[in-house]
Amino acid sequence: MVPLSWYLALSAVLFTIGVAGVLIQRNAIVLFMCIELMLNSVNLTLVAFSRFLGDVTGQLFVFIVMVVAAAEAAVGLAIIIALFRTRETLNVDEADLLKL
């Protein structure tokens, strides 16, 4: 069996890559993808724990996460489309009517 810590480490690496992506990417849609990447890495943690604890709860949680991710994607992309219709840019830096 592959040790639990390998999975957790991989998951942590993917999660941090996602976080880094959110920080360096300026394109809303890619930013959103980075967030999806983070969610995915969490799924890996959950499934790994589920296997090592012999408890199906982790996988059920993953299932719920997937549903949420799908809903989030639908709404998020709709928002992006709505914004694009009014502004024609997806660079979050250019979306600067509201100052940060």
């Binding site: 069996m1 589920s50 296997r51 090592f52 604890l53 012999g54 408890d55």
Partner: peptide, 8 residues
């Protein structure tokens, strides 16, 4: 050690 109970 991984659990002997394998869900999935």
């Amino acid at each position: 050690a991984a659990s002997s109970n394998v869900p999935g």
